[in-house]
Design a protein around this nucleic acid. Structure first.
Length: 613
RNA sequence: GCACCCGUAGCUCAUUUGGAUAGAGUGCUUGGCUUCGAACCAAGAGGUAGCAGGUUCAAAUCCUGCCGGGUGCACCA
């Protein structure tokens, strides 16, 4: 509809003011802020007026007159009027509602997806934890942001590969190993009954505690790393054991949260990569050796500025002793991935504190002359702060992912039971829900709450984790959206049984009054319905904007607003009790389509929509 | 010191990329369950959009300068 209106406006302005004027002027077609202003609005009069140095109101007036002539040919317009320089359109509901509702009905779960004119092969790296501890709240934010971004990109028709880089080597890994070998006394996750990643994480915390008392432990950890790198059997065996414990623990957590990789990369496999690349770059003159013998890269001044002495800032890509660095490894990995998968685009989802690293990395890859280097993107997100400050694993001041999920499920379970027991004028006995069903719903609701909480604000802002707000099931939350869906489904179930039992009849004869040809869209069009329709209609546009801007929060906001509009419609418009069967059918279509859009939106966010809750 | 991010209602955040009277949630004050599920709806109070300038028909949005909070600044990852 937006496109049709845009074309109409274009034509009318061209007629009134000439082709040249409209050609180099950009105007918007959008929803007006208040529903009584109309269904659509354009600022074209104001931009044209500016261009031609005319009064915006006069221009708007002329356009409205001209549009009224076109109204005869454009059957979709009910009313056109000028208001404060804007031109506002009111559409005929039998056209507008029909168009939107039938589009959703026919596309179903595909509504919201589109086929990019230039589909790309995209790789997204996300999650990427260290194998010395369990996942925490920061990983959760990374994971849900990753999943939602991946889904949004895939919805644009891109082929997306999900990868992670598992940090399973380094001195921090050795610290956990050292503590375990020193004090572990042969205990295992099984013998202690701990989840294996937590078991290892506890040893890592123990190391930090002991190292405060005994600083020689730090050097011992360094020595262990050297033994590991030298391939010492005993060290490698210990490493394998602890590493596997952590990986086993994660699998459980990731399965619950819906995180997965098409291909996990392990640092232990790739950390030596990139050296050849650096040597090639050195001979090509992209890199140089500095006084200390390190191979360095001079960062472009345009982008990075100069250091205090006025020289280009530099970054080391290989140590003088030939050992590699984070940057070395990431260079090698990027090239390997791009070649292996023929990538058009590579996206890294990593916290904001690593912006410098990725800026440098991308600058180097560009200097090395890779075509795809221009399509590298670091999707960074803000820190997660706890009420008493930043999370630090070493100090144990983290919100553990498993703990949070467990707590939320407990709360959700209690909530379900309480609500089922609430009489509400209904027979309590009939509200008894099977144990397994309670568990299933509790999990869906709890995860919906956590994921939505982390996704509802744009990635760039820091999150100040508020336990009270995060555990809420009411208001601007995931469960609010899920509830709107469950209510819609509840109506549909009732309708289903009424039609089956012939409580309602198709006035035009036998059959189902919900059939497409029976629906009288002109019966729709109340304010609540129009607001809801705007939300339904604009969903695909929001999804593609979210993908373009790497901002899943746009989807979260839109799903919430759709649920809000639906709830408002729900209370003001009885469906099954509608005055006529025709009206019931039309509203039922509204309900059906709303549910579908909410479900699709939640799915993009990695949140399940429960039929009942 | 330099660079980047953030600053909007008591609190947590939106604001369709420069548009109409800056909106939600939460908390507070009210009203609504014998009618499709009250995890809901409706109403009220709550604002110098950090501060000061500038650009223009129009600025929370763009520019400049300050203030406050955060992150980063090769040879850790």
């Amino acid at each position: 509809m937006k496109q049709a209106l845009t074309e109409l406006i274009y034509r009318v302005v061209a007629e009134e003011f000439g082709e040249d004027v409209i050609k180099d002027v950009s105007f918007t077609v959008s929803y007006p802020p208040k529903p009584d202003m109309g269904d659509y609005s354009t600022n074209v009069a104001m931009v044209v007026a500016q261009k031609l140095k005319l009064n915006p109101k006069d221009v708007a007036g002329r356009l409205v007159e001209s549009l009224k002539v076109h109204q005869v040919e454009s059957e979709s317009l009910e009313r056109v009027e000028a208001l404060g320089g804007f031109v506002n359109f009111t559409l005929k509901s039998e056209i507008w509602f029909k168009e939107v509702l039938e589009a959703v009905s026919s596309e179903q779960s595909a509504f919201g997806t589109s086929q990019s004119s230039s589909p790309e092969k995209i790789m997204v790296e996300y999650l990427s934890p260290n194998t010395n501890k369990p996942l925490h709240l920061g990983h959760l934010r990374n994971g849900v942001t990753g999943v939602a971004t991946i889904n949004a990109l895939a919805a644009q028709g891109h082929a997306v590969t999900k990868v992670g880089i598992i940090n399973d080597r380094g001195v921090h890994i050795c610290k956990a190993m050292l503590a375990y070998s020193r004090w572990g006394d042969g205990s295992t996750p099984e013998s202690t009954g701990k989840k294996p990643d937590h078991f290892v994480g506890d040893w890592y915390v123990r190391f930090a505690q002991e190292a405060v008392k005994d600083p020689t432990l730090e050097t011992e950890a360094q020595e262990m790393l050297q033994k590991w790198e030298a391939g010492d059997d005993q060290t490698r065996e210990l490493w394998q054991t602890l590493r596997q414990w952590v990986l086993d623990g994660w699998i459980e957590t990731e399965a619950t949260l819906g995180f997965s990789y098409d291909k996990p990369y392990y640092e232990s496999d790739v950390y030596l990569g990139g050296k050849d690349l650096v040597n090639q770059g050195l001979s090509k003159g992209v890199f140089r050796k500095n006084g200390k013998g390190n191979v360095v890269f001079d960062l472009p001044e345009l982008e990075f500025g100069k250091d205090e002495e006025g020289n280009a800032r530099l970054i080391t890509v290989l140590r003088s002793d030939g050992t590699s660095l984070y940057t070395t490894q990431d260079l090698g990995l990027a090239v390997t991935r791009a070649e292996e998968y023929h990538l058009d685009r590579l996206i890294y989802i990593v916290g904001s504190e690593q912006r410098f690293h990725f800026q440098s990395l991308f600058a180097i890859l560009k200097a090395l002359g890779y075509a795809w280097a221009n399509k590298l993107y670091h999707l960074w997100y803000g820190m997660v702060y706890l009420p008493d400050g930043k999370m630090k694993s070493r100090e144990g001041t983290v919100v553990d992912a498993d703990d949070l999920v467990t707590q939320m499920i407990d709360l959700a379970r209690q909530e379900i039971i309480d609500r089922a027991n609430r009489t509400n004028g209904k027979d309590v006995a009939n509200n008894r829900i099977e144990e397994v069903e309670i568990e299933r719903r509790a999990k869906i609701i709890a995860l919906g709450a956590i994921k939505f909480y982390l996704l509802k604000q744009k990635p760039t802002v820091d999150i100040h984790f508020d336990p009270k707000e995060s555990i809420s099931f009411e208001g601007h939350t995931g469960p609010y959206c899920q509830y709107a869906y469950a209510r819609a489904k509840s109506i549909e179930r009732s309708a289903e049984s009424r039609i089956k039992n012939q409580v309602v009849r198709d006035p035009e004869g036998s059959g189902d009054p919900r059939r497409e040809s029976r629906i009288k869209y002109e019966l729709l069009g109340d304010t609540e319905e129009r607001i809801l329709l705007q939300k339904l209609e604009s969903f695909p546009e929001v999804v593609s904007r979210a993908a373009e801007e790497y901002n899943p929060a746009l989807i979260a906001t839109h799903v919430f607003e759709t649920a809000q509009a639906f709830n408002s419609f729900y209370t003001s418009h009885p469906v099954l009790q509608a005055e006529t069967t025709e009206l019931m059918s039309a509203r039922l279509r509204m309900v059906d389509v709303s549910a579908q859009v909410i479900k699709n939106g939640l799915a993009l966010l990695g949140i399940e929509a429960p039929e009942e809750m």
